[in-house]
Amino acid sequence: MSLHRFANPARFMRLSAALLPWCSAAAAALIAIGLYLALFVAPPDYQQGEAVRIMFVHVPSAWMASFVYALIAVASAVALIWRHPLADIAAQGAAPLGAGFTLLCLVTGSLWGERMWGTWWVWDARLTSVLVLFFLYLGYLALVNAFDDPGRGARAGAILALVGIVNLPIIKFSVDWWHTLHQPASVFRLGGPTIAAAMLWPLLVMAVGFMLFFFALLMIRMRTTLMAAKIRALRLAEIDRLAAARRPAAAS
């Protein structure tokens, strides 16, 4: 019987220790290459000029914002159904990172808007959806940290993540509907697959780089949580040991 349920996550620790250097190095290399391609190789857009280069950060962070939320929801489902301790740690480790990507997406979107439309904020359907997603992240983070018992926060957060993932398409749909009612479709279209290859490649390189960067950070965060839990378990064991040592002494 282990004193602590996180006491022996040895497999994850071994695996992540082996993967972490490779993952980090690949992320750094890909983001460096991606930035070089985006800033110096990709041509300026014939309409948007140099400002289009914001896209190479904006779009991957938007993808990551949705991807990380989906990952949190999957991890939460695993945590609720199978009570796998690593799933809780993964969900909580991923949430601030996802919120960070969402914020990055909002800030770059705002900068882009200032160049394109001459205003810092436009109630564009996509920006609005991302803004709502940002608030879902904030709600999750606030809920997870709102309880004295961290286990309680983890379980409440897991339920909220599932509620959020069900609501996300509904919110997205309603915001799109709202936007088409209130504003004509904006010029904010990438044009799907017709995007020039010279722009597509840097975008994909950046996207993969962001993904690896995220997983490297996630592994670091999870390892930190596990090590902190290990330290707490050792402290508890020490207290128990001292208490046990004192008991017969008091009796005699």
Binding site: L3, R5, P150
Partner: peptide, 13 residues
């Protein structure tokens, strides 16, 4: 039966 409260095992077996 074993019961855990927080990170501590309250009773076991």
């Amino acid at each position: 039966l074993a019961c855990r409260r927080g990170e501590r095992l309250v009773f076991a077996g």
